[in-house]
């Protein structure tokens, strides 16, 4: 079965940890992930500027490793990312900001990418709230 995973909460929310564990289970069970889409506070997971205390799980880092290892299509909504300060090289240049903090493995794009993924998939599971 083909899944879209929709991440709506920040990496500090338990929902984002559950999203990762669910996504790992999807692949482990032999299913396919068409796209992971990061929207609302979910875009913060794609920042490589997060610093997590040593005695806590770094869920953003785990997400990035999972995406990279499995070569997943990970799209971060560009409008939601800009207003939360997650920028890639092109956007930092466009808006004359010093920090480029979109982690490797992610790409900024529009909400059309969410709808495009839905059209290809069988299931979309959203993780938001706490």
């Amino acid at each position: 079965m083909k899944f879209v995973i929709n991440v709506l909460s920040s990496s500090n929310a338990p929902a984002t940890r559950r999203a990762l564990r669910f996504a790992q289970a999807v692949l482990a069970a032999g299913h396919e992930i068409v796209r992971v889409f990061f929207y609302q506070d979910g875009v913060l997971t794609a920042s490589n500027n997060l610093v997590v205390a040593q005695d806590q799980q770094d869920i953003a880092k785990q997400w990035q490793a999972f995406i990279t290892e499995n070569k997943l299509d990970a799209v971060v909504c560009i409008a939601a990312a800009l207003r939360r300060g997650v920028l890639d090289q092109a956007e930092a240049q466009r808006y004359q900001r010093e920090a480029v903090n979109l982690a490797d493995g992610y790409q900024l794009s529009g909400l059309g990418q969410l709808h495009d993924a839905l059209q290809q998939a069988d299931r979309c599971i959203s993780f938001g709230g706490e």
């Binding site: 929207y39 939601a80 909400l111 059309g112």
Partner: peptide, 8 residues
């Protein structure tokens, strides 16, 4: 932001 999903 919810509304933007609809408009898209």
């Amino acid at each position: 932001e919810a509304l933007d999903i609809a408009l898209a």
